[in-house]
Nucleic acid binder design. Structure first.
Lengths: 150, 150
DNA sequence: GTACATTGCGCAATGA
DNA sequence: ATCATTGCGCAATGTA
């Protein structure tokens, strides 16, 4: 169910993303200087009207912009890694708990059996036991003290 | 830790994505017909060389393209929802297991105590017990049958 | 080969 | 202003 491929890490998938990640640093500046609406992902680009202010700093060509983008990309990667790690941990926790559960159930089974044996032994010789005890004192036989629990 | 905002569902975040999701249907067709390298997300667009074949059907203007894209977008959304659901289920499973664990531990505690009481009782009257039993037969006293073995 | 499912990635909005 | 999260769309890849 998938686990064998997983695109290239960091680098590009075909040979373009890199350009945008490093281009501005070198002299490649192949950035489209006339992008109409940004065909890419969740990106926007140019609200039909209203661009007479901070556009200078926010425009795609700005170094500021690229810097911000790159930093955010790092943050995103980091965050996603963390998220995946957490998910994996949770999954592991489930297995851990399942194991412990089995362990506990086994122990319960054992204790229950042990208890049952002792109780049977008690009943089996209850008469001899009480016969020999009752006459001597007035002690509590407690044959039913804790019964069969909850 | 986030849960209050969550951008607009389906619709746009600022007023552009919609164009790409529906534009071709209406008459807006503001698609950039000269996109150089695709400034968007993981998108590529034009491997420096080699485009003399299926580009006609794959080009951004193609209705086929938009159809495929839209379908994939749906699939992606669905897949991500499923993924999140699963994660949540896993988390819930953890809590469930933790509860059961506590329940089991409590039971073990109870059983242990019960057993301890019975054993004490046994030892307390062991002599009387054996006195009355041994003479009759050669039965196993079993006072240590299961000991404290875990 | 088509259709859907997953996954890595970058963008932008928004939370902290 | 900085980083962290999150919804979203794209494209590659996997699966049926």
């Amino acid at each position: 169910m998938s686990k064998t491929s997983q695109q290239n890490p960091t680098a590009e998938t075909n040979g373009v993303s890199v350009i945008y990640t490093q281009a501005h640093t070198s002299g490649l500046q192949q950035v489209p200087q006339l992008v109409p609406v940004s065909p890419g992902g969740g990106g926007k680009a140019a609200p039909p009207s209203k661009q007479g202010k901070k556009n200078s700093t926010l425009d795609r060509n700005s170094d500021e912009y690229r810097l911000r983008r790159e930093r955010n990309n790092m943050a995103v990667k980091k965050s996603r890694l963390k998220s995946k790690q957490k998910a994996q941990d949770t999954l592991q926790r489930v297995n851990q708990l399942k194991e412990e559960n089995e362990r506990l159930e086994a122990k319960i089974k054992l204790l229950t059996k042990e208890l049952s044996v002792l109780k049977d032994l008690f009943l089996e010789h209850a008469h001899n036991f009480t016969d020999s005890v009752q006459p001597l004192g007035t002690e509590n036989t407690a044959a039913n003290s804790e019964g069969s629990g909850q």
